[in-house]
Every structure is written in C-alpha cells, then in structure tokens.
Design a binder for these strands. Structure first.
Lengths: 190, 190
DNA sequence: CAGACTATCTTGCCATTGACAAGATTCAAG
DNA sequence: CTTGAATCTTGTCAATGGCAAGATAGTCTG
C-alpha cells in the first residue's frame, strides 16, 4: 500500500495536509485570501477538522510561519559557510522558492508571535544574519550598519521582486541581477 | 454651520469618509483585517452605502493604493531636488508616516492594477526613482544596478522596520539609522 | 483481548460578512 | 414644479469563522 492516505475517519496526517493546502491557497490568493473551510475541502475533511489541530486561522498561519522560519534558518546556515555574499543570495533564493512561507513570515499581525517553535527558528535565522553582516564590515564600528544594509537590501529585493514592482521581474534572472547589485553595494571581494 | 456633516440622508463626502475609515482600520488590523460593513459603521451609514462608491472591497483598496501612490510620488518628487540620498530617505519617511497606504501599495493582489489614476501615480513615482538611481552610479554601465540597489534598500528598510523585524525598531530613530546605512552602502559624497 | 481512555474527526448551529437587488430620499437641471 | 440622476437604505442569500456536542478510531492498561 502506498503512502497516500485512504479515506477513513482518521485522515492520517491532517496537520500536514492542511498546511500544504494553506501553502497552495496562499500562493494562489495571498496570505489571507482563503478560508479555513476551503482548506478543509482541499484536504478532504469536514469543515471543522482543521480547528482541532490549529485552533483558528491564526493558528494555521502560525504553523506556516514557524515552518518557514525553520526552513529559512536552515538555508541561511548552510549558505553562511560560503560567506556573506552567498548568505544574501540564499535569503533572496529562499523568498522566491518559498513564496507562501515568506509572505506570511514578515507579517506578524497574521500569526502568534509567542509560539516557542517559531521564536526559536526566528532567532536562529537572525543570528546567521548578524554574523554575516559583521563579516561584511570593513570598519568594525560600522558593523551594525553593514548588517542592516545587507539585510534590508536582500529583503527589499525579495519583496519588490515578488510584488512585481521591479521591471526586471518580468523576464530577468533574479539571482544574476542580485549579484550585480551586490557588487555595486558591497564591492567585489567580500 | 461647521464643516462636520450633519446626519442627513446624504452624507456629504462618503467617499472620503470610507477611505479614512479604511486607513484607520488598516492601521489597526492590517490591509485585510476589516470588513466593508465595519467601514460603513465607522462612517455612520448603512452597510451597503460604500458599495455605491467603490463597488467592492477591492475597490476600496484600489482607492487607498491610488491615493498612496499619488502622495508617494509627490514626496519623492520634492525630495529629488535635494539629491538621491534625500530621495531614499523620503521613501522611508513616507512608508513610516503613511503606513496604511504603504501596506496596500505593494500588495497588488489586493487591488485593481488597471486603475488609470493609480497607474499614472505609480509611473510618476517610478520615474523619480529611476532618475535618482542614475545619479547614484559612478559608472554609467552600473546605473541600473545602483538604482535597484537604492530602491531595494529603501524598500527593505521600510518593510522590516514596519514589521518590527529590526531590533532597532524598538527604540531607535529610523532616519538616523537609515542615514548611517546609506553612508556605508553608497559612500559619503552622494 | 476486553474495557476504558484519548485523540481525531463530523455534524449542527449562530452571528457576521460580501455581494446583489429593489426601493427610498435628495439633488440638479430645465 | 417636474423629471431624471445620484446617493443612500432595506432586505436577502450563500459563505465564513468559531464554538459545542456527538461519533469514530486508535491506544493503553490490566
């Protein structure tokens, strides 16, 4: 028998199924353009089943954000071994590859900030960014400014690209363009 | 008689009142955390009155975005006379001073992109940004990269500050911090 | 393996919402 | 004053979020 859940009373892994349904719905209609009942339908369960696992809509979004920050921290930690430049590119790459996660993560009014799992992953990601920023600064007195500069660049690039505001997002290659910008902002050799 | 509208059958300026109610609601609960009926209540009219002026929820958000881009273009055009550095700071200042507008403007899935008034203001703002970016580039071949770099920095700074992701947003002065970052990214003399 | 316990899911319900239709009121033009 | 248009109200319907109560299926204990 395959791993596909049979249609029984118990779903098997409804939690996972609802999160996946939410990610799809977010991709299609944005972080708030869907209903809990729609997720239930996509998962093939009754309209109230998701509430058992997540409580309410904010609960679903909290789970999405927590998963997002965990994946994000993983990606940043791996890239950090190759230097701050690659870390910045990993930031952008993550946003574009995991758009639904990313669109929720930085909208804290949508979810519960006090979720412990979420906080842990968020701090893990923040630590990587801070360390990478320090490595960028020529002058240690400006380390903080360099960190903020790198972070805000990567974040702004991702947001503008995803929103379609950059004319280049129609046809260009985001990573290539991001590299050229990094070269201008931070120089070649870092 | 004062300018405050009496409670008559005709409101006087319901369109303005609904937009203002929307801006307040967005400030309190985000770009989608409110209902049309709530706006109607805030404006003191019946639940279906706003529909006459805006059609539906997306219509209200289109009006907010259009007004936002117009104010944004005004602010950028004025700052552009003082150089690209001030233009970038004006970008950030606008986002923080007009948070509800800003939170809608760069979320095109919320409103109607084909609105002519909106498009015009958006292009006006884009032109200022492109010109300011060119002025930043030392090497003309890198003008585009410099423009994107400046734009994405300003945008990312604004977004991260508004979302509370930057630790500095708890107590620091955004404009002062932004200036120090600009100095690191773009040098002192531009 | 039997019974009790618990997690999971369903059904039923209610106030609220978005959207539409039809009617009421006011304004403006001639 | 009359007529037509703009503005606003009332009424309605399907859909939604959230809660409560009940049904089902695993799991644990002995």
């Amino acid at each position: 028998m395959g791993r596909i859940a049979e249609r029984t009373y118990h779903h098997g892994d409804l939690r996972r199924a609802v999160i996946d349904a939410a990610l799809e719905a977010i991709r299609e209609s944005g972080p708030t353009g869907w209903s809990l009942r729609e997720l239930a339908r996509r998962a093939g369960v009754s309209h109230a089943a998701p509430a058992h696992h997540f409580g309410d809509k904010a609960g679903v979004l909290t789970a999405v954000a927590a998963e997002g920050f965990a994946l994000f921290a993983d990606a940043l930690e791996e890239a950090a071994t190759e230097g701050p430049r690659e870390t910045g590119l990993a930031y952008i790459r993550f946003a574009l590859a995991h758009r639904p996660h990313f669109e929720v993560m930085f909208r804290p009014e949508l979810y519960r900030l006090d979720d412990p799992e979420l906080s842990a992953a968020r701090e893990r990601a923040g630590a990587v960014l801070a360390a990478s920023g320090d490595a960028l600064a020529t002058d240690p007195a400006r380390a903080r400014a360099a960190t903020i500069g790198a972070w805000t660049f990567a974040h702004g690039f991702a947001e503008l690209w995803l929103s379609g505001a950059l004319p280049e997002s129609a046809d260009g290659d985001p990573e290539e363009i991001a590299r050229s910008v990094i070269e201008v902002l931070f120089g070649r050799n870092r």
